[in-house]
């Protein structure tokens, strides 16, 4: 089984880090999609199926919080696991995102090892 993964971050550097780590971890990948904000991600998710979403919070147009809320309100998208990777370390934000329905919350800077561990946890149970 090969997975489809969506990476949502306005930073090219952040997206590249995640994509490269997935490659290094030898996760069986079918497609790695990238979006620069929540709106691009929601548009893409109308057309393609993904097994896992990595998302930043602080992004232009639709931010990560709003994107997750919209995904959770749609029958087709509500069960897709979302992992937040954000620079925001506030306890209140983490609680807000848990409430919105994210599966994990990692704070930047993350290491490739942290990311590998979380990917293995979610894709093994997918």
């Amino acid at each position: 089984m090969a997975y489809n993964i969506l990476i949502v971050d306005d930073s090219l550097t952040a997206r590249t880090f995640i994509a490269r780590t997935l490659q290094m971890a030898e996760v069986p990948l079918s497609q790695v999609y990238q979006a620069r904000n929540g709106q691009e991600a929601l548009d893409l998710l109308q057309r393609v199926w993904v097994d896992l979403v990595f998302a930043d919070i602080n992004m232009p147009t639709v931010n990560g919080t709003e994107m997750v809320r919209q995904m959770r309100a749609m029958d087709l998208l509500k069960s897709i696991p979302v992992i937040i990777i954000s620079t925001d370390r506030s306890a209140q934000r983490m609680a807000e995102m848990r409430e919105a329905g994210v599966q994990a919350y990692l704070t930047k800077p993350i290491t490739p090892e942290d990311l590998k561990a979380v990917v293995e946890r979610f894709l093994k149970s997918a």
Partner: peptide
């Protein structure tokens, strides 16, 4: 060390 690992595509 971490830089060298990253450049070589290796995990610790």
């Amino acid at each position: 060390f971490r830089k060298i690992m990253w450049k070589n595509g290796l995990f610790i």
